[in-house]
């Protein structure tokens, strides 16, 4: 395995309410000999909400983030589906529209930056699969996950819109995605097949429409539980937060008891690779998951 090296765009959540996402990502990279350079200059991606308020400003800020990966001469990897969406969408819009790119670069020039479009933008999940390879990952497993039924929850912004992502997500079919199932199998876990795996968790309306959010997250959690899942895993910290934190309110709304640990993807990989409890950070999961170690 030649040295894999990426610029890591952490997003906000991994540096705030889900520190376990960052620590487990770094731990996995260390175990696999992948070098991750933190993009400390980067700002928030706007999470699709700043985009609703001021589309142009959000383009400028996202382009700036990518500039710093370009300056390092590295491809960018993300660890949040929504960061991935907004970074990739910015890249796609600027790369396909020279006029828009010029307008954005006019602003960036004021702070001495230029967006060129030279770095690929991928979610770390797909960089692992594409560049490191599942067979190589399998070979590194120290603690097989064979005693767990694991429900993969893909998260919208890694799989839709498929046209935007298909070159950086292995051409995943949004109606029948397989990459997370493959990852679970590579770690010798049993992947759970259930209808909600590619559905929305409702995170983005949690403030203004909590009923919608609870209905969507609750339905997916219950679906996983009814298909004998012991835990759920997701590459998106926003899905993770919504589904880990709000099990009581979702359960109340659906009239069901919901109690299912929800892990970040790198937490699951770190478990299988035998990383330390500190690195995996299960103490930060709200729905009790510490007994998984």
């Amino acid at each position: 395995m030649s040295n894999l090296k990426y610029a890591l765009y952490t997003g906000c959540t991994a540096r705030e309410s889900t520190p376990e996402l960052l620590s487990s990502t770094m731990a996995v990279a260390k175990k696999l000999g992948i070098e991750l350079i933190l993009l400390d200059e980067a700002s928030c991606c706007g999470a699709s909400h700043l985009q609703d308020f001021d589309d142009f400003l959000s383009l400028v800020l996202n382009a700036r983030n990518i500039c710093y990966a370009e300056k390092l001469g590295l491809d960018m990897v993300t660890i949040c589906n929504t960061c991935q969406l907004n970074s990739a969408m910015t890249k796609e819009r600027l790369d396909s529209d020279p006029e828009l790119k010029a307008k954005v670069n006019e602003k960036l020039a004021e702070v001495g930056l230029e967006y060129k479009g030279t770095s690929r933008v991928r979610h770390f999940q797909y960089a692992l699969i594409e560049d490191y390879g599942l067979d190589n990952l399998s070979a590194k497993v120290e603690k097989p996950l064979s005693h767990f039924n694991i429900a993969p929850f893909y998260g919208c912004h890694n799989i839709r819109p498929s046209e935007l992502h298909h070159e950086v997500n292995g051409g995943e079919n949004p109606y029948a995605p397989t990459s997370l199932d493959d990852l679970i199998e590579a770690l010798e876990g049993n992947s759970v097949d259930y209808e909600s795996k590619n559905k929305c968790c409702g995170f983005h309306v949690d403030l203004q429409a909590p009923k919608t959010s609870n209905a969507l997250s609750g339905t997916a959690l219950v679906d996983a539980i009814d298909n004998n899942a012991d835990l759920m895993v997701t590459p998106c910290p926003l899905c993770q937060l919504n589904m880990d934190l709000k099990q009581d309110s979702a359960g109340k709304q659906l009239g069901r008891e919901i109690d299912l640990p929800v892990l970040h993807l790198p937490q699951m990989i770190a478990l299988a690779l035998g990383c330390s409890a500190e690195e995996i950070g299960l103490k930060f999961n709200v729905t009790k998951a510490t007994e998984l170690i």
Binding site: T13, A42, C44, A47, H49, L50, F53, Q208
Partner: peptide, 23 residues
């Protein structure tokens, strides 16, 4: 001005102060 519009606009408050969103 309501919870949703403030949520969209409010991102700028944090980004100005920290670069990151203050959750």
């Amino acid at each position: 001005r309501n919870v949703a519009t403030k949520h969209a606009e409010g991102f700028i408050r944090s980004i100005k102060k920290f670069g990151y969103l203050d959750e």
